[in-house]
Write a protein that binds this DNA or RNA. Structure first.
Lengths: 332, 332
DNA sequence: GTGAAAGCGCTAACAC
DNA sequence: GTGTTAGCGCTTTCAC
């Protein structure tokens, strides 16, 4: 049987209250008792049962992070950023994967209901705005990376439209005027906004939009990046550059371009979005728009923790700065 | 304030014991009461507080998974396999990243001490055998993917030696006799055993070992895969094939080979280990040894849960079957 | 089939 | 500075 606070108290010849006080760093305990208690704790190998503590404190100091898939270094980097900050301020981060399945996501949100965690940040969600809003009424949640239209929930993302705008402007400045777009799901806010940025960049440079240059793919089915490239290569008037709304799509496009005998970086420039680890592993390396993962993670956790103890919840939308990173796939 | 079992009992006009019984599916409750209770639960939006429940039950039905880095699809696939099985049998999986940092790993193991989780599986660890053994004395833990020499702890891995042996034999059967090895840390059991498999395969085919063909790199610093390739390419008598102990190392080697103007798959064949998602994203696609992630995940969770309720803990070493996967990087 | 009550391990209000 | 005690929300004997 494991040792409890009572055992420590008995062994040390003090009350459980005193033990609890040294455990929680209360000042109202003499140095001699404190020392005695600490020694006894050490000797017995005691470690407080957090179920008891958390039950009493009505808080766990644990934050849940859910994500659609864990096989994506973008998410994992953000989680790392969260952990870094959270640990510093006494919180733990645990993470789970929804596999884009609402039942699984529901199951995970149960941790909120059953008080296993103090709050949750959703790195993408299957929930719609209504469901999120009613969830946010009773629990502390936040969105990160991917916002949801109409959700009045604390959200941290890059400014997707502006980031895409910058990316496409960069391509234009390199002399490209025939620029293809590989977009993702029509329902994904990030893809919608990145497309908006693409269109705006063309408009601002007086480049007419060519609908042939817009290919609809999917975040979840990266193989479509290959199909996109095949399609673009089949056009009579081929684009000289491609902007894809995710690195994975860009990588697939690059792979297909190489297979088609196109030299990526000179024959065709390709730019992704996210700056995942693999961007530097590929041949050629992939130009992209960096999402500042550590900063995003820190910010969302910070704001979420603030909400824990606040009566009027902050449900604002926070933008965090992106950065254009040029590598070989755009000839840099 | 959130609704408790008392509220439900009061509203339904029954005792908390009865509510608890329907919550836990006890048969000793009349259908009429049960129905009433269920309706009340629904009406009040009640959801049991697991801190109270777990405290009383002395179990959480949660298993912790730790890994050195979460930016590695191999781990994430294994976790997915664990989740699949665990959920089926009423357990939840939560995962954390140690960043190869013992303090962080300690902090996470606290979840074991403070009873936040019922057990833990370590997908690689910074702990040595002694520390693991003493941990295993008091808590249910398991190793997965990467064993530790001398640890008497439940472990599930592929048979690394045999898997590497098969991989190298495959290269030999393709006619290669000059085969380079990119190994990882001298301390990593998996790398040691994969090297042993490499050596055995050469020996069994009467190919003398050429020490020039063995390059020491690191799992954690994949860039060394590039250095390895550079080195092999600089040799007068270059190897015609390379076996790397991880896909990431193999990918880096492939990248460098391409940069050096070598056609991977014909000029030189390269084979990795793990079968991570990116193997199919690369150009060329990467031949490798598949670790059966879902099966590994299921097996380790199954055995671990068995241990929860067993007095004589199973601390055996379980092997799970690997599979050779041939793709373009070996000319397939 | 049901309820009263003890108690899981802990913290915190209160009394001294 | 320290101890006593109530109670967090739940499950589970035990009695009826």
């Amino acid at each position: 049987m494991s040792v409890t606070i009572k055992d420590v108290a008995r062994e040390a010849g003090v009350s459980v209250a005193t033990v609890s006080r040294v455990l929680n760093g209360s000042s109202n305990v003499s140095e001699s008792s404190a020392k005695l208690v600490r020694e006894t704790i050490e000797r017995l190998g005691y470690s407080p049962n957090f179920l008891g503590r958390n039950l009493r404190k009505r808080a766990t100091n644990v934050i849940l992070v859910t994500m659609p898939t864990s096989d994506h270094s973008l998410y994992m980097k953000i989680v790392a950023g969260m952990q870094l900050y959270a640990n510093k301020v006494g919180y733990d981060i645990i993470s789970t994967t929804t596999s884009q399945n609402t039942q699984i996501e529901d199951r995970q949100m149960n941790m909120l209901f059953n008080r296993t965690v103090d709050g949750a940040v959703l790195l993408g969600t299957t929930y719609d705005a209504d469901k999120l809003n009613s969830l946010a009424e009773n629990y502390d949640i936040a969105l990160c990376c991917e916002g949801v239209e109409g959700a009045n929930v604390l959200t941290v993302t890059v400014n997707d439209e502006l980031a895409a705008y910058d990316a496409v402007c960069t391509l234009i400045k390199k002399g490209h005027r025939k620029i293809g777009l590989i977009e993702a799901e029509k329902t994904a806010v990030s893809s919608i906004q990145r497309k908006a940025g693409y269109l705006k960049a063309l408009e601002d440079h007086n480049i007419p939009v060519n609908l042939d240059y817009i290919y609809s793919a999917s975040y979840d089915d990266p193989i479509q990046g290959e199909a996109a490239m095949e399609y673009f290569a089949s056009l009579e008037d081929k684009p000289t550059a491609i902007f894809a709304v995710s690195d994975i799509l860009a990588m697939k496009a690059i792979k297909k371009a190489s297979e088609l005998g196109l030299k990526v970086g000179s024959d065709i420039s390709i730019m992704g979005f996210d700056n995942i680890t693999m961007c530097e592993m590929m041949y050629p390396t992939v130009s992209t728009v960096e999402q500042p993962c550590v900063r995003m993670g820190k910010l969302v956790i910070q704001k979420l923790i603030d909400n824990f103890s606040s009566s009027n919840k902050d449900n604002k939308y926070y933008y965090v700065e992106h950065k254009i990173i040029l590598r070989e796939s755009t000839g840099d």
